[in-house]
Amino acid sequence: MSNVRVIVLAAVVALVLAPSLSALLAVTGHLEPAGVLTGLAAGFLLRRQPSTAALATLYGSASAVLIGELFAEGLLDETDFADAMAGWPGWVLGAVLAYLIAAQGLPRGQAGAVKPAVLPMGAAALIAAVLSCAQIVAGKAFGMTEWVDYHPYDGPGWYRDLTSATWYPAASVVLASMIASRMPGGRGRFVVLPLAAWFGCAMTAGPVQYAQALGLDGKPAVVALLASLAGSGIGAAAAAAALRHGGTGLGLVSFVLVFTAGEVTGVWMKDLPLLWSLVGPLALIAVVAAWTAWRDASLRSGVVAGVAGPLLVWSVYLTIGSRNYDHSSQSWPYWLALLTALMALLIALTAAGLARLGRATRTPV
């Protein structure tokens, strides 16, 4: 498949197919299958282009939200389009299906890598459990999550706390998988390590989240447990991509660390100007994309690495929704995550293209 055809098909999926499917489903009042259906279509349209199919599906979620918010709100009764689409990681599941269909199953070589490797698998599960539980406990101790019906300074905080419950295990699974892959026997195990890390989070972070949310009146604590499990799954999908595609791991880990630091220091809070909220993430995207494109001599590799981190953050917020009617500490980061993901594509393309051009024109001294 030529590069031009791949780009055209990816654009059709992201800009036409995903919004159209979402609008049609909005008429029925059930937007939940939009991501899965988009992923299925992307997988078949972009055969043998698995990473492109997955990215097109995730970017389709962004265009669907934008177009839906602008033009399709009348199709829904008293519900924002972004919130109607939220509630489960359907778009991430769609991206995984798109990847598997486009790749025609697991890539060759994974069958041999599925053999047990006790040390890296155990390490992945243990590290993920420790990291996720530590973040959950620290988040509660320092007031990042409160699990109360009302935040005195910001109104209801249920959805913001659910976002944290999704983010902590997602970030932990990514970091644990990358660390475990460096251990003896861990190289190339891009399926079993993320699954082991997911299991570690499910067995530890999930119950801790459940216990923290038990005190809320009218809010089922099981939702916090499900958010934790969903976040682990999002992190596992991202980690599998990182372990399979070189450079993507750097983008994910860098963004995990930067985003977590931003959460702790309040960088993504509503009182920071939009421009300053974007400077750091966009600079990081450019560096990761340029370095990966230069190292791999591949424009596509640089772009995938550059957008991986923003898409991870966007996937977490997409799962919970914007909840504009609730409180700004949820809605502001939601729309900022969407804007960052959209700008990341342009920044990564530009940076990777310049790096690739510089490598191609470099002459020996």
Rank of each mutant, 00 (worst) to 15 (best):
A26P: 14
G218I: 05
W291G: 03
A360E: 11
D326H: 11
L349G: 03
V264Q: 05
V27N: 03
E263H: 00
Q110A: 12
I101R: 03
N3H: 10
V8D: 10
G35K: 05
G200Y: 07
A165N: 07
L55A: 14
H30F: 08
G43D: 01
G302L: 11
L17D: 09
R359S: 05
A125L: 12
R295A: 05
V16A: 15
T265C: 01
A128P: 09
L257Y: 11
H327K: 10
L9I: 14
L318G: 02
R187H: 12
R244K: 14
A290M: 05
A170K: 02
S177E: 03
N3W: 09
G302T: 10
L24Y: 02
L357M: 10
L76S: 08
A224D: 14
S61M: 12
I179K: 00
P169Q: 01
S22T: 15
G309W: 10
G306Q: 11
P156C: 00
A341D: 00
G206Y: 05
G60T: 09
S2F: 05
A111C: 00
T204D: 00
A360F: 14
L275F: 15
L93M: 13
A103H: 13
F190L: 05
V307M: 09
G39Q: 12
W158R: 12
W314E: 01
F71L: 14
T265E: 04
A176E: 07
L349M: 12
I234F: 09
M1E: 13
A283H: 02
V307H: 07
P220W: 07
A355L: 12
G321Q: 03
V27I: 14
T57F: 06
